[in-house]
């Protein structure tokens, strides 16, 4: 057995996973937060203003990484959901279920900042732009997964149902995005596309953006481990190791 499969098997044991999460959680949190503060300070004060969009483009340092995270987390949710359905691995169920609210939060941030960017740039908070529209539908897909998992009492059944819905959603996402682009070109005159001057980006603006993308992933790792810990505790509440954990007051 190679080292990776061995590690994976060990993580299948809840106490080992809990200890692993407890050890790495703070590292992910602090590195993510520090990196985010660093990247955002850089982006806010030490990069030139965009000649086309002025100062408002600085919203993109939040908007773009959040939008990336919205899609990335959905993929993680569906892939771990697939693993959970096929191999019945409890940990994969937990990862899939715990990812949903984090991904929904990032997608909501992407939508809110996108419309805030639209006001000074397009002159309105909302246009039925292809990217905004497909992000909105992505948020609805997240709501569906969360709603389904909340509506089923049995936790493992809820995780499996949500996982299946996430897989169906993942298969659909490229189709939805393509259809929305198609719809957009059918209906939208080119007025909006004129202002999409941000396809080529200056390196001085790119660095903070990439750092933010790393920072959001670190934060996701923290939030995921944290939520997974809570779910593990709930599932294992009768076990000895949880008792010991709860009994020792210094552990909190």
């Amino acid at each position: 057995m190679n080292a990776l499969t061995l590690w994976f098997h060990r993580m299948g044991s809840p106490p080992t996973f809990y200890a692993f999460a407890e050890r790495w959680r703070p590292w992910f949190l602090w590195s993510g937060l520090l990196l985010a503060v660093f990247a955002l300070t850089w982006g806010l004060f030490f990069t030139p203003a965009d000649y086309l969009q002025g100062e408002s483009y600085r919203i993109l340092y939040i908007h773009v990484p959040s939008a990336w995270m919205g899609q990335f987390v959905f993929a993680v949710m569906a892939v771990s959901g697939f693993v959970a359905l096929v191999w019945r691995i409890k940990l994969a169920e937990i990862v899939s279920l715990a990812s949903a609210p984090i991904g929904a939060t990032f997608t909501a941030v992407a939508l809110a900042t996108g419309s805030l960017w639209g006001r000074p740039t397009w002159g309105t908070y909302w246009v039925w732009d292809a990217r905004l529209t497909s992000t909105l539908i992505l948020l609805f897909l997240y709501f569906g997964v969360i709603g389904l998992s909340r509506a089923i009492e049995d936790r493992r059944k809820a995780a499996r149902a949500a996982a299946l819905l996430a897989i169906v959603g993942l298969v659909n996402i490229p189709i939805i995005q393509y259809s929305v682009y198609w719809w957009n070109t059918l209906h939208q005159p080119s007025s909006v596309k004129l202002l999409r001057g941000d396809t080529t980006i200056d390196p001085s603006m790119l660095w903070p953006l990439l750092l933010m993308a790393v920072a959001t992933k670190l934060y996701y790792a923290y939030s995921l481990l944290s939520r997974a810990q809570v779910m593990v505790l709930e599932q294992e509440s009768g076990k000895d190791w949880v008792r010991r954990l709860a009994g020792a007051p210094a552990n909190d």
Partner: peptide
């Protein structure tokens, strides 16, 4: 089929189905 075990799934079912139906509606 996913919501079959719930006594009243009407709104939830709409929440699950409608986003997936976007491509069909668009085309």
């Amino acid at each position: 089929a996913l919501t079959a075990a719930m006594p009243r799934a009407g709104i939830l079912l709409a929440l699950l189905v409608l986003p997936l139906m976007v491509p069909v509606l668009v085309f």
